[in-house]
Design a protein around this nucleic acid. Structure first.
Lengths: 261, 261
DNA sequence: CCTTGACCTTGACCCGAGGTCAGGGTCGAC
DNA sequence: GTCGACCCTGACCTCGGGTCAAGGTCAAGG
């Protein structure tokens, strides 16, 4: 007379796998039942009942460790424990919902989670004659500026927005975008550097694009990461930036120097 | 001239821990940057930019393995991958929400997720003179019946509901509930068994409480698990059940026997 | 020069809730 | 006696890092 069902049947009744039942035994959530002569576990009604109860709690999201410590069903502290689990569950749901919202922004091309104003600036660039690579480079610069100097980012966007309304500045920026294809010793580099420095010095409000961030960062390292982003060493772009900085310094503008604190 | 920032600074900028950055390197999500003379990693703007991008995706719930396989940002398949992740996220949110609902039912004393009718029956028991232990035993029997013979559970509840409207049957059930305190050889056991069997045979509709489940389960094992739940071997309850079954069988009622298939 | 404390290096083990694989024993049916 | 389905134990895998261990490097202060 075989008494009780085997582990496979018990698992099927409770809607779990055999492995799961053994796992519950190992964690002490369900007592190990008697074994028959061949060493198989045999489950009676009490064991099945316990297994179903544990399963109901586990399916409701109660962590297994919690189930092991749970007071008797029906008591007040039992209800309190469940309320605790429910809070935890709600937090997790809120977290995932926030993640999903973030993901939607990311998928909508709201690249790298920049604020709406920055996205608008980037989206206007192709209409002003900039290439897709230019847009990408500008976006990366925005991301870096936001990450490295978050408290100055809004002012930075203010400065860029108003400067781009000046057609002479816009023309200079457009010439600068072409520097990627030049040789470092191209004579146009020095010429453009002179024009840029001259423009900045003639329009102090626009000079703030360069100096505004620096006033906040204090450390040269961050400034250099932003200002010299996407310049390979020894390129025409690097030489252009160095020339402009030198000219501004010569005119008395304070700029961090490589290696200074 | 130290070029680039250290791992701690890069991690702080991206809002992650040092360990996390190294983890990303190990997974190949961010290329290992150059090392300085002392072997420290030095992060330039490109590496920082990449780190921030990876972080944005990870914070949006994209699995790290997915980030590694992700096509270039901006392409159609990139958006498709993100949509995939979003579906996954939504599924998880739905799952957790369902868990929370289940948990609320469990916490509200909606014991073991029985249907409303079963809960109503259990809640009516104390008013009929049953003890808390009796209610618990009945609840466990319900749970077992539901798990072992789900398709017959509704009919079973029908039978129990209508039988309990018969005051003579109710009186018998109340006497049966006291059997837990008796000795197995108590003369009242045989007396009660005779009364129970007589009542079942006189009221075939109520006999279905015993035979209805059996007609569906087919296997003796399941029937015995339900019918003989909460009877320790050698107790008065077990003897009572055996006597009732014997009398019913003698009257021609088909009941599974221990050991039959 | 030496120490102190903060930072960096690699490597190994830990969490939850089981899944999967390996190697072997047992059952009922043919 | 042999097949397929079931059972046994034990060890390793997941995922996104956290934590610990044991040691090297750096800048500042005495």
């Amino acid at each position: 007379m075989m008494i009780g069902v085997t582990i496979g049947q018990a698992a099927a009744f409770a809607g779990v796998t055999v492995k799961t039942v053994r796992h519950y035994h190992k964690l002490g959530l369900v007592a190990e039942p008697e074994r028959d002569s061949s060493g198989y576990r045999r489950y009676g009604s009490a064991a099945l009942s316990r297994l179903v109860g544990v399963r109901a709690l586990a399916a409701a999201g109660v962590p297994l460790a919690e189930i092991g410590r749970l007071p008797d069903s029906g008591t007040a502290s039992f209800a309190a424990s469940l309320a605790d689990v429910e809070r935890h569950l709600t937090d997790r749901i809120d977290e995932l919902t926030a993640q999903r919202d973030t993901l939607r922004r990311l998928a909508r091309g709201d690249h790298a989670l920049l604020p709406a104003r920055a996205v608008a600036l980037l989206e206007g660039m192709p209409g002003l004659g900039f290439s897709a690579d230019d847009v990408t480079a500008a976006q990366e610069s925005f991301v870096l500026a936001k990450v490295l100097v978050p408290e100055g980012f809004d002012d930075y966007l203010d400065n860029v927005e108003s400067a781009l309304k000046d057609p002479r500045f816009l023309a200079l920026v457009q010439r600068s975008a072409e520097v990627g294809g030049w040789e470092p010793d191209d004579p146009r580099v020095a010429e453009l550097a002179a024009d840029l420095a001259g423009h900045y010095l003639a329009h102090p409000a626009q000079l703030k694009i360069v100096t505004g961030l620096q006033a906040r960062t204090e450390t040269a390292t961050r400034y250099r990461l932003i200002a010299h982003h996407s310049e390979g060493p020894g390129t025409a772009a690097a030489r252009l930036a160095a020339l402009v900085e030198a000219k501004l310094r010569a005119a008395g503008v304070q700029l961090p120097r490589p290696g200074s604190p």
